[in-house]
């Protein structure tokens, strides 16, 4: 999921494919904004974030206002408006992981790596994010490194991860 340069033609082709899929599955109900979330996920997958320049294109293709579109993009925690680091570490901070000490790990990341949730390491290797539940509540503290789930996270594992992503 590396950030790549904005490409209007690719945005159009991603959107067109999802629009066609929605019409195929939902019939007339699939008109308008119905394919919007799949489109935004696909764009973020392709470019690493949702570029502002993509919004007028999507608004035109879906026949919705840009205001509405910006409202949707900003509503969901997943969608980024700017590129993230090469890797993303999502650390769970919900109750089950709290009971197993996740806040101490967040404090450790701040103290040892000067990294707070929402921040990216200066070398662009890793973005840290907070997340509320990864469904690994029996084996917490849990985190997601890119798409890989990590259970029983501890300081040693964080150290190992930080040196891995910097290779």
């Amino acid at each position: 999921m590396n950030a790549s340069a904005f490409d209007a033609l690719e945005v159009e082709s991603i959107a067109a494919a999802e629009i066609a899929r929605a019409l195929d599955f939902y019939g007339p109900d699939g008109r308008g904004a119905a394919p919007l979330l799949p489109i935004l996920h696909a764009l973020q997958h392709a470019f690493g974030y949702i570029d502002d320049e993509a919004l007028p294109i999507l608004a035109r293709m879906l026949n919705i206002s840009q205001a509405e579109l910006r409202g949707v993009v900003s509503f969901y925690h997943d969608f980024r408006r700017a590129p993230a680091g090469r890797h993303r570490l999502k650390i769970c901070r919900a109750e089950a992981c709290q009971s197993l000490g996740c806040e101490a790990l967040v404090a450790y990341l701040a103290q040892a790596f000067h990294l707070a949730p929402g921040q990216t390491t200066p070398d662009g290797a890793l973005t840290l994010e907070s997340v509320y539940c990864l469904g690994d509540c029996a084996l917490g503290p849990a985190a997601l490194i890119d798409d890989e789930l990590i259970g029983r996270l501890d300081k040693e594992r964080i150290d190992a991860l930080m040196s891995e992503v910097r290779k």
């Binding site: 769970c92 919900a94 109750e95 089950a96 992981c97 539940c133 469904g135 509540c137 029996a138």
Partner: peptide
């Protein structure tokens, strides 16, 4: 959309 902490 199983978002409750402690559920899996």
């Amino acid at each position: 959309d199983e978002g409750d902490s402690g559920t899996f």
